[in-house]
Design a protein around this nucleic acid. Structure first.
Lengths: 244, 244
DNA sequence: GCTCTACTCTGTACGACATACGCAATTACT
DNA sequence: AGTAATTGCGTATGTCGTACAGAGTAGAGC
């Protein structure tokens, strides 16, 4: 059995049992909570080792007794910011996965800094894995194979991420670059201005027909449901199909 | 009509017409190409203003005549690294979108630093928009509405990103954290070691049944096709359904 | 042709940041 | 009591993005 990287161990509550020197004044949870609070209120850019240390009342270097480096802290944050998944109740697999996906998207929109966190590591934290478990559990009666269930869950959470990214970049906007072309309507205008109908036939036609100029936002809830049902229909078709 | 942010204008070939002062020694394309070469060979972390400037033989601050700040440079890179989309030929919409999505994924895998580039701005570069145009074009005969076509394309490219992210993080791995649990098999092992079957029933059962322990990699091509067909089936079902 | 003016490149400088290193204080084990 | 491990901290280093000011350059207006 492979040894766990120290921080992963701590994520799973395995604090080191050796008690020699002074009793630690902190634990990983407090540090993570402080970092998350900073990210929530001031954005991810404000999450520096100095700021986090100040927030918990220690010197910057003290944090390195709990975290190997900043990337590890961010990884732990990414898991720790995830709430418990919804209860199954007596929902059908389809209804459950629908709210599962919606809540995933809502989480990403309520904590946009999660979108900025690159997931260079496959999910290994306890909370994200709990979500994964519930999605797999919802599919357990469908007769799908393990790999199929796994992929279905992956696709759904990926869709939540895609939609949240798009919605967020069109909405409250992030970069100063986006601030110039804020909102779907203005985005459309900017595009029409620059698109050459010869090289972009389909896009410019769509823009001119005024797709993005309508009053209601572009990627509103209806559009989220659209893609979601697309995926759920696909899964449903797969279940109906004879297993192979 | 909204004014274009200066870099966006340059992305579209609109170099400033005012000709006073010394003739510029560079243009945005050369700078971007240099930055991309660095990212390709040494990774995104090596793309600093100093390094890029050195690569093109100029003092670091000279770059700021062409780019407002580093974020803008990254944005331009993200578009400039995209090759032209595949030709339609006489493929069906389904076959075309299948290769379209596959090539999108392949691009992300061949330039992994694209995965690290947060897309805080909706795509506005000429090359990415060309891909979007081709996807929309492929759907033009299906009777779908504009918004539906748009969403379908979004979902597909989002899937490419999801899959590329997962594949890459399990494969060549990125962070040192991931290096410890490299490859799908070891990932599975690490999980089984730590998962409590009581709180993670579905997941731990799946792990113990040896999903990830098989010889062939986990998110191999078969799994990509699985999700892809899921989506295409969903779109096909939508097309078959009476328009509303 | 001369001057003005906008524009390009450069050098220096500053503040922020991640983090390597070493020290002093503290506590458990022997 | 003594030893060894471990925590928190101060200092220091190198890197990075970029603000600023100046020097050189070339077209515009006379």
């Amino acid at each position: 059995m492979a040894e766990l990287p120290p921080v992963v161990a701590r994520m799973w509550g395995r604090e080191p049992t050796t008690r020699r020197g002074p009793r630690p004044r902190l634990d990983l949870a407090t540090i993570t909570a402080a970092a998350i609070e900073i990210a929530d209120t001031e954005g991810l850019a404000a999450v520096s080792m100095s700021n986090v240390a100040a927030q918990v009342g220690v010197a910057p270097m003290a944090l390195y007794r709990y975290v190997g480096n900043k990337d590890e802290l961010l990884t732990v944050m990414a898991d720790s910011a995830v709430p418990p998944p919804p209860e199954r109740g007596n929902l059908s697999w389809r209804d459950y996965l629908a709210t599962w996906t919606r809540l995933t998207r809502d989480l990403l929109l309520s904590r946009p800094w999660l979108l900025d966190l690159r997931q260079s590591t496959p999910p290994m934290g306890p909370r994200r894995l709990l979500w994964l478990d519930r999605a797999l559990d919802a599919l357990s009666d469908t007769g799908l194979g393990d790999a199929q269930k796994f992929n279905a869950a992956t696709v759904l959470s990926g869709y939540a991420l895609t939609d949240a990214t798009l919605t967020h970049s069109l909405g409250a906007g992030g970069t100063e670059l986006a601030a110039r072309a804020k909102g779907a309507a203005e985005y459309g205008e900017t595009l029409t201005e620059v698109l050459d109908p010869a090289t972009y036939p389909a896009l410019s036609a769509m823009m001119r027909s005024g797709l993005l100029r309508d009053s209601t936002g572009w990627t509103e809830d209806a559009d989220f449901r659209f893609g979601l049902n697309l995926l759920l229909d696909g899964i449903e078709a797969l279940i109906a199909r004879p297993a192979r």
